[in-house]
Structures are given as C-alpha cells and as structure tokens.
Design a binder for these strands. Sequence first.
DNA 1: TTGAAAGCGCTAACAG
DNA 2: CTGTTAGCGCTTTCAA
Lengths: 353, 353
Amino acid sequence: MSQTTSSPYDEPMPHSAPLDRTATISDVARLAGVSVPTVSRVLTGAARVSEDRRRRVDKAIAALGYRPSAAAQVLASGRSTTIAILAANTSRYGYAEAIRGVEESARAAGFAVIIVVVESERDDEVRAAADAVLRQSVAGVVVLKFDPPGVAALKALQSAIPAVALSGVPEAGVPQAVLDESEAAAALTEHLLSLGHSTVHHVRIPPSGKEDGRTTGWRLALQRHGIPTPPIEDVSWDVSTAHEIGVRLASDPAVTAIFCGNDETAMGVIRGIHDTGLNVPDDISVVGFDDHPLAPMFIPALTTARQDFAELGRHGTAQLLALLKGESPLALETVEPPLVFRESTALPSSRRR
Amino acid sequence: MSQTTSSPYDEPMPHSAPLDRTATISDVARLAGVSVPTVSRVLTGAARVSEDRRRRVDKAIAALGYRPSAAAQVLASGRSTTIAILAANTSRYGYAEAIRGVEESARAAGFAVIIVVVESERDDEVRAAADAVLRQSVAGVVVLKFDPPGVAALKALQSAIPAVALSGVPEAGVPQAVLDESEAAAALTEHLLSLGHSTVHHVRIPPSGKEDGRTTGWRLALQRHGIPTPPIEDVSWDVSTAHEIGVRLASDPAVTAIFCGNDETAMGVIRGIHDTGLNVPDDISVVGFDDHPLAPMFIPALTTARQDFAELGRHGTAQLLALLKGESPLALETVEPPLVFRESTALPSSRRR
DNA sequence: TTGAAAGCGCTAACAG
DNA sequence: CTGTTAGCGCTTTCAA
C-alpha cells in the first residue's frame, strides 16, 4: 500500500486516448495483392519494385486513404523523421521567430516537429523537458539557448541525442548557429557616443547566463572609450517594468542615452520617458535591439540592430540535419546583425546635464 | 523505369536519422529480476505490483536512466499521449499566444505537443498538413481556425480524429473554443460613433472566411445607426501595408475614425497618418483590437479590445481532453473581449470635414 | 500478483 | 524483383 520509493513512474499516467483505427500496411498489401514488404518498399523507396506492382500498391494506398504510422516506422527502422524544439518560451518575438524558422526548414526536409518547453531552470522542470524529448524518439533537437532554462536543458540532454543550439553568443562544445550580438551592441553604443553622449546607460533583458552578448558589447564599447559603465537596469519580460525604468531614468539628468536589450523594452522605456514629459530623442536617445516589426512604426521609430531569428532557426535546422547525415565538421555560421538608424537617437540635449 | 502513377509515396523519403540506443524495458526487467510485463505494470500503473518488486523496478529504472519509448507505447496500446496543434502561423501575436496556451495546458496534463503548420489553403498543402497530423498517431488536434488555411485544414481532417477548433466566430459542427469578437468590435465602433464621428472606416486583416467577427461587428454597429458602410481597406500581415493605408486614409478628409483589425495594424495606420503630418487622435481617431502587449506603450496608447488568446488555447485544450475522455456535451465557452480605452480616440477634429 | 505468449504496424535481413 | 521470417519496445490477454 504505502509507497516508499518515488520514481516518476509511480505517478498516475496521463489519460491517454484511444486512436481511431485506420488502414494498415497489411490492408494495403491485401488489396494490392502483394506482400507487406513490397508495400513497405514502395513507401520507403528502399528497393526497386516492378512498375506493375507499384501501380497496384499506389492504387490501394489511395483507395484506402492509407498513411503509414510514424510510430511503427520509427520502432521498426530505428530511424526517426521528427525533431524537437526545446525552448523556454514560444510566443516572445525572438523565440517565436526562431521556432518559425526551425519548423519551416524541418517541414521542407520532411521532418515533423515536436515542441517541448522548459519554463524555468528548476531541476525537475529541466529534467522533465529532457525526458520528454528523449521519450519521443526524435532524430535530434534544436535548443533555443537564449536563457538559463535553455542552457540548463541543453546540458541535461547530455548529448544523449544529436543537438544544436541557437544562441546569441558563440561558445565551444555544442554545434550551434549563432547571431553574434556583441559587435552589433558595441556598434550601437558607439553610435550613441559618436553623437556626443558622454555615456550610455543600459537596460538589460533577462540574460542567458551571467552575461549576454548585448550587455557584453555595450560594456566593451564603453571600455574602448575609457568610460566607466553606469549601473545596469534589469527588466523582466513584462514591458511594464521597462516603462517603470524609463520613468526612473528620465528623472536622472545624467542619463542622455540608453541602450535597451530589445525593441519591446526600448518602447516601454521610451513610453516611460514620454510620460515624464520628456521627449525621445530630443531629451534622451534610446536604441533597441532586434528590429521588431513594429520598430519602424513606433513614434519615434527605433534605431536598432536587425536580428533575423527565423534565419537563425533555419541555420540551426540545417546544422542539425547535416549532423544527422553524418556530415561534418559543421561550419559555425555567425551572422552579424546590421544596424538600422531611425528616429530614436539624436545629439545630446542642452537641456540636460 | 518510367513512372506513370504519382502517389506521394513515389517521392524519396526524407533522410531519417538513426536513434541512439538506450535502455529498454527488457534491460530494466533483467536488472530488476522481474518479467517485462511487471515493469510495464509499474510504468502504467495499470495493475498492482508487490511493494518489493515495484521497488526493484524503480531502482533499475533509475540506475539505467530508462525512459519508455512513446512510439512503442502508442503502438502497443493504441493510445496516445500526444496532441497536435494545427496552425497557419506560429509567430504572429494571436497565434503564438494561442499556441502557448495549448502547449501549457497540454503539458500540464501530461501530453506532448507536435506542431504542424499549413501555410496556405492550397489543396496539396492542406492535405500534407492533415496527413502529417494523422501519421503521428496523436490523440487529438487543436486547430487554429483563424484563417482560410485553418478552416481548410480542419475540414481536411474530416473528423478522422478528435479535433477542436479555436476561433473568433462561433459556429456549429465542430467542438470549439471561441473568443466572440463581433460584439466587442461593434462596441468599439459605437464608442467612436458616440464620440461624434459620423462614420467609422475599417482596415481589415486577412479574414478567416468571407468575413470575420471583427468586420461583422463593425458592419453591425454601423447598420444599427443607419450609417452606410464605407469601403473596406484590406491589409496583409505585413505592417507596412497598414502604414500605406494610413497614409492614404489620412488624405481623405472624410476619414475621422478608423477601426483596425488588430493592434499591429493600428500602429502601422497611426504611423502612416503621422507621416502625413496629421495627428492621432486630434485629427483622426484609431482603434485596434487584441490589446497587444505594446498597445499601452505606443504613443498614443491604443484604445482596443483585449483578447486572451492564451486562455483561448487553454480552453481549447480542455475541451479536447474532455472529448478524449468521452465527456460531453462540451460547454461551448464564449468569452467577450473587454474594451480598454486609452489615448488613440477623441472627439472629431474641427479641422477635418 | 506474476510470467508466458501474442501482437501493435512497420522495416530488415534473407532466400529465391 | 519478391515473399518469408524476425523483431523493434511495449502492452495485453491468459494462465498460473
């Protein structure tokens, strides 16, 4: 009665649901008047089948509306045509775009996609996510290593399965596709400096580790100019925290230029500044990061660095598929985000300082 | 040699990838000194297992890092713990949020999620998507019936599998969760009218069928007031088309109030108006729809109707899971989006008309 | 409670 | 080129 152990399998199973029975390969074989392996051969194209039989099989398949069972195929062949996306989030801009890119190219290659999310870096969540991936007999996994949960999940996978990471910071070890953020962040910061601002404040989005490329680039640019780094402001993913920080920063006359971790944050910060009666860029310059679709529509339109997350996702999938085919070494492709200058930056105001 | 038939299975298979072999149920059984079915029993909880053996099995599972193969389980049991999300898009705001809601609640119920996208309503694409769903042995599917591809895909499924639709317009036939948009759209339109605008123009986003709830509501409100409906402007999902329309509408002095199909469109339209030198809301009032996270940050902050897509997704999943358990009839839950009034609407300007 | 035997739908040798 | 025979990892009878 009483249970002294506590493996996850002591828990009740989820309510699984019965599958509607549909035509099987033997139904097709019977109708076509051939053996089951012959049907399999036309399915996989693994071996030659006579024109005549192939036609009969195709006809039977069409007649029965037959679709091979992916589960049975993976079991019998030991090969899978499904990949997993492991991510901490599915709906935020960069994440959603990266997922779109992965899904798109996976589908083009004939792979199905399962999505598993790991919400936090808590040990049980990370383990559950890794388990979910492993249980599904996927060929490989693309992990969005944008944040601590992503990093932890990647580690939990322990290369038990082919994996590639999508990331903003190059890093040795795992195959990955990276969008090199740090140079672009530095360039954005220097743009602000070159306008005449004596320093640049930074609003940091939740980082992937101790520091992400955006923050690193900002710090780097400041260092290059011998400017001490002002205290960092941290925002959550909730834009309203960016708004609060905007209000706070606006009250500090030393603040004339702000580098935000992403465009949504920049919009929140600008709105906060706006609400104190100050103007962007006349009083304070603000830059974002990502080139969000709404960045050019915002008033003022955002100066930012363009990140092509979907492309990152496509690269990652390509890497994974190459890895699966045994091709290597994989070129670690690094893309540098192009800067786009719009309306949210200007010379420092004489009204401040 | 030459092929005269052309079933999809004449095409080459995707490169499938070999799976790393891991511990199987027999490994566990052997290590625990029990039979395979006994291990299965502790896994599924289907039958009683003695305390002693259960403990040994648990220990063996832990020692081997064993994870049951979902593919083998589904094959043997004929029951699945995976559901599919069928959507035309994964990254756009409403879609991404709905997907998040579905994934979240599916995960909470112990279900894995596969995502299949159907990009257009082209017959081959729709069929491919339906096939992908059916091949995966999923327990059921949640389809985002937000647009023509979604509608077509749902139809292609032919109730070959338990399905629930997520939608903005109630409709008989399929189980569904709906966010009733038409009343909110009407209310938003009437808000504009009550401010003194003599008519309200409409910028329509790509609709799910001949007409979506937003457009219907707008039309309804105008009719109630005996106002003829002005010509509709259609935008694509690309915000720049909204911008163009904003510019165009601004040049028409008859336009003093605009109801946009969603907030992103509203932002594009406002920016277009702004670029002609006119002001929102002083010269023209604009309302959006959805209450996008950036809507309160935009300058001017958007008057809009809040849509909780994630909640819609959760409702849908709940419906599907209930359906799978054979519970019914399902309450068709309809949520009416609450209006939120902000800065983008005002009295009509004396400068126009 | 437990194990032996059968089988889910499919692919992989292996003869022929 | 084609059919026969095994067997993928698991669950499900069925006896014991």
